[in-house]
Amino acid sequence: MSIHRFPHTNLYLWTAVIATVTIIFGLVSLGTGLGIESGLPVPADIPGGCILLLIGAILITGIIEGRKDRARWVQYGYTGLLLLLIFGVCTLLIAGAQAISLMIEGEFTDMGTLTGSGFIWGAILAIPAYPGIRRILFGCSQGGAF
């Protein structure tokens, strides 16, 4: 299987969309954490914002290098999506545990932090792209275009 052929272009463009969304969420989380009001329902989270920017940078590196060598896009894209999925699941678990704690204490549970989390949206966007890019990665590694 060659990764240079169509229809990988769709996946390539989708990775660019995910990278853009991740970076926007990262910047807003970081900005809100530093006290800059954005008006968006994104929770203030300085370390989380930095991690989103890191993942965005990984995906962007793949997209830029992938213009000359699609194999690089597969490597960086797969790793970036995998990180988004892992951290998305972690965010879900953290939010779930926090909700249970609040319920035990009889306090109001606000799920806004969950729906505004860049990790959750990043992971949701990564779900349709992950199987495709994984198939290309493993296909290439079995004696393909690499």
């Binding site: 370390p47 990984i58 797969y78 892992i86 951290f87 590694s141």
Partner: peptide, 28 residues
């Protein structure tokens, strides 16, 4: 034949991305 391990390592042990990725895992 190139293994997925080798391909992933180029990103996960990248000179710039390697340590921040490790710290991200630790933070989570």
């Amino acid at each position: 034949r190139v293994m997925p391990t080798d391909l992933l390592d180029q990103v996960l042990t990248h000179p710039w991305f390697g340590i921040p990725i490790f710290l991200s895992f630790m933070w989570f």
